[in-house]
Structures are given as structure tokens and as C-alpha cells.
Design a protein around this nucleic acid. Structure first.
Length: 399
RNA sequence: GGUGGGUUACUCAAGUGGCCAACGAGGGCGGAUUGUAAAUCCGCUGACUACGUCUUCGAAGGUUCGAAUCCUUCACCCACCA
């Protein structure tokens, strides 16, 4: 039983530091039911969770199955600094209300995956605020600049003359201090967090906590483009609250190569099953599209249910395979004689009449399934279905 | 505090008086092909009922018939020296 647990825990991980510790904790749980804590930090700036986050959440859920209690840490204090990602150093300051609102929707989404009864939500503002200047200095004394510059992105930025704010140096320290305060047994995070996660171990030692946390890192999930990491700002993400048909559709649009990655990190299928499937696709017993459909169905089901997921699949097939119209389209009422380009803008299908004009000329626009090419067209009374490209539809009522 | 360099569209990055709505690359969008996959090929990529007009090259002024380009001031960023 312990072996099964450990295998599940190890699945898909990028790296585990101090695996012995994890083995001991899990073994102990099976011996006498002693639970242990698993910490994971989340940034409350972006209230929308996407599949990239769920990789981590699923791992947490796995731990919950095997005796772990999750410390769901909201980094409301650290959010004010911003993790040194090398992107914009300046960050929008969040109000307390914003944070509360974000967190509510955040946890709501997270509990689609996590077991709420085995989760404790903690806020690092609670203890970091009280740390004070002296506490801060004491904390900072644990770290040398040279050590800090070992961190990959710091050294790169330093080498390429990109500015590094001193406050950014504090980020890993504070995150590490969270582990001291919480006395976490295990912390999990993405591979990009390695430095910060290790800082937790180092600081726990400095603050004389007997056992340092084990660290488990998950790979970063690539976004829909298959190159960059999935993130909202890059627009290559699938949000967990998106509509079933969008989740399904987006998953189906990923490349075949990326599909295997998603299978590994997101699917519930066992690694053996996936290997088998891969073989079947390679030997052409299974069409790659079928494999992708199954993945899309599985993920969509996870956030909704089988019925809605199946519906999404049917809708998708009817719209894109059979070129039928989607069942639900936004509807608009317009005045008689409206110029087609203006109508496209008003319906939100185009950002400007200039763009609309270009698209019409490029045969991208159709009315009632008929391509049009006259960019000076005016619509007369009646009802129309207008479409731009393959994905954008709207229903127009001209009166 | 001193010296030098920089700030151009979604991003990177050319352009140093008229040929500039601004080269090129990436991204994005559209078309063909397809499995709404990838790859490939082609087109588009400031706004405006539009072969013309208007607004854009950090900000504000100025020189000029004419400025992204020259001058002045300001803001921000970077490097080196202290």
C-alpha cells in the first residue's frame, strides 16, 4: 500500500529533494494514522485558475489521499513584492477587498480538485506583517548576496543588465519563512520555484526546526502554444471556469506532441495506460485525434460532469466537423441599413471597422453561411447569422 | 554626486530632415490544405463609410516649407566611476 502511494506521489514529478522524508511520513501514516502537512503557496493576484495550476493541485489531492493535510497558503503579503519573474518589476497594488474577492473565487475553484476537509487555508500576511524590521533583518542575515545571485533568473538578469530590485531578494526569504512558521513537512511547487523551495529548507534549519521540509517539484505545464508556460498574460491558457465547450475545444486544438505532455501531467490514466495508448497511436491502431478527444473529454468532465462534457463534444463536432452553427450565439439588434463593418464591431466580433474591412476583403466573413466580399454592404431588415473566421459567431436582428 | 548610453507599434528591433503609418523578425488574425493538430504556402496586422483624411516613434516646447530624425527642458531606464 505504501508503495502504491509513493508511486502515485512520484508520478510526473520533475524533482524530489529528500524523498526519504516523504517515504517516512507516508509509512508512518499507514502504521498509526499520523498525518503530515503539505504546503503549497498561491499568489492571490490572479483569481483565475488554469490547467497549469491544476497540475499542482492534483498533486496536493494525491497527498490528501495518503495522509497529507494541505496548507493552502495565500501569499497575500508576498504578492505585494511580486515574485522575481524578470518581467515587469512594478506591480499593481491590491486592495484588501480585491484580495478577499480573489481568494474566494480562488478557493472555490481549487476545491473542485482538493478535498476541503483536509485543507487549511492560511495567509502569510498574518505572520509576516508582525515580523517587523528587526525580524526582517534577522531573516535577511541568513542569506548572502552571492548565494542569492546563484539563483538562475537573478544571475541572468544581472548578467544582462536587467534591473533587480532589492525587495525582490526578500521574496524567497519570506516564502522560506512561511515554511518556518508553518513547520511544513513537505512543500510542493513548480520547477521554477526550486530556489524558493530550497530556501524553506535552509531557513527551517537556521531557525532550528528539527526536520526540514521535503521538496517536490512539478514540471511547468506548457500553454496551448506548446512553447511558453501556461499563463493568463500570454493568453495560452485553459481556465477551469471556462465553459465546457471552450475547455474541450481548446484541448482539441493542441498539437499532438503537446497532447502527450498533457496526458502525463493532467490525466488520471496510469502511466502504463498512457504508454500503451502512445504505442497504439504510433502503430496507427488508434487515430491521434481519438486520443485527443478522450483527453479533452476527461479534463472537461473533471470540471463539470460527463453529461456536459459529452454535450460539449457533440457541439464541437457539429460546429466544426459538420460546419453547423453553434447552439448558443450572442444576439444583437441593429438598425436598418447598418454597414456590415460597423455591425461586426458592434457585435464584438471585430475590434475596429478597419479590421472588419480587411477581414471582409480576405473572405473571412460570412452571412448565413455565405462568404461575402463586399466591404461596403449595408444590411437590410431581417435576421442574419454572421461569422468571422472559424470561431466567431453572432446572431443579428436588423429592424 | 560625476561621465557616457538609451526610451520606436503586442514584443524584439531598423530607421539620424522629405522616398515614413514607419525595414525586418516573432507573435496574432485570416485564407488554402487538414484531424479547428503539427508542418507548409499565401495574405493582412494604427484609426476613420476610406484611392483621401486624422493621430502615432518617452513628455512638453522650439527650429524648418517639411521632424521618429535637429535644438531646449523634463521624466524614466541602463552602464561605468565615486
Amino acid at each position: 500500500m505504501v508503495n502504491v502511494a509513493l508511486e502515485e506521489i512520484g508520478r510526473g514529478t520533475a524533482e524530489i529533494i529528500d524523498i526519504e522524508r516523504i517515504e517516512k511520513l507516508v509509512t508512518k501514516y499507514y502504521e498509526d494514522g499520523t498525518t503530515y502537512t503539505v504546503k503549497a503557496g498561491f499568489d492571490p493576484t490572479a483569481p483565475d485558475l488554469h490547467l497549469g495550476h491544476t497540475v499542482l493541485l492534483q498533486k496536493l489531492a494525491t497527498f490528501q489521499k495518503f495522509g497529507g493535510r494541505v496548507q493552502f497558503l495565500i501569499g497575500d503579503f508576498t504578492a505585494m513584492i511580486g515574485d522575481p519573474t524578470g518581467k515587469s518589476a512594478t506591480r499593481k497594488v491590491l486592495t484588501k477587498e480585491d484580495i478577499v474577492k480573489n481568494i474566494t473565487s480562488y478557493t472555490e475553484q481549487a476545491f473542485k480538485i482538493l478535498d476541503e476537509s483536509k485543507t487549511t487555508i492560511v495567509y502569510n500576511n498574518d505572520w509576516l506583517e508582525k515580523l517587523g524590521a528587526d525580524g526582517m533583518l534577522q531573516l535577511a542575515s541568513n542569506l548572502t548576496v552571492a548565494r542569492m545571485l546563484e539563483r538562475d533568473d537573478f544571475s541572468k538578469r544581472y548578467a544582462s543588465n536587467t534591473p533587480i530590485a532589492v525587495s525582490e531578494f526578500m521574496y524567497p526569504l519570506l516564502q522560506g519563512y512561511d515554511s518556518v512558521h508553518l513547520r511544513s513537512d513537505i512543500e510542493i511547487g513548480g520547477t521554477d520555484q526550486k530556489f524558493n523551495l530550497l530556501m524553506g529548507r535552509q531557513l527551517q534549519k537556521a531557525y532550528e526546526i528539527k526536520k526540514q521540509q521535503a521538496v517536490l517539484m512539478m514540471p511547468i505545464l506548457e500553454g496551448l502554444d506548446g512553447v511558453n508556460k501556461m499563463s493568463k498574460s500570454l493568453g495560452n491558457y485553459i481556465g477551469v471556469t471556462e465553459e465546457p465547450k471552450n475547455i474541450y475545444g481548446k484541448l482539441l486544438s493542441i498539437s499532438d506532441e503537446l497532447m502527450w505532455r498533457y496526458y502525463e501531467l493532467l490525466s488520471e490514466k496510469s502511466l502504463n495506460e498512457i504508454a500503451q495508448l502512445k504505442e497504439d497511436v504510433a502503430s496507427r491502431t488508434v487515430h491521434p485525434k481519438t486520443a485527443k478527444e478522450n483527453l479533452a473529454l476527461e479534463i472537461t468532465t473533471r470540471f463539470y460532469n460527463e453529461e456536459l462534457a459529452t454535450l460539449a463534444k457533440e457541439e464541437f463536432n457539429s460546429v466544426f466537423k459538420a460546419k453547423k452553427l453553434p447552439t448558443d450565439m450572442a444576439e444583437f439588434e441593429m438598425e436598418d441599413g447598418i454597414w456590415i463593418c460597423q455591425a461586426l464591431v458592434d457585435a464584438g466580433l471585430e475590434p475596429s471597422t478597419s479590421q472588419a474591412r480587411r477581414d471582409v476583403k480576405q473572405n473571412a466573413v460570412s452571412i448565413d453561411q455565405e462568404k461575402i466580399s463586399d466591404d461596403k454592404l449595408n444590411l437590410t431588415m431581417g435576421e442574419y447569422i454572421i461569422q468571422v473566421g472559424k470561431k466567431r459567431f453572432a446572431k443579428l436582428k436588423v429592424v
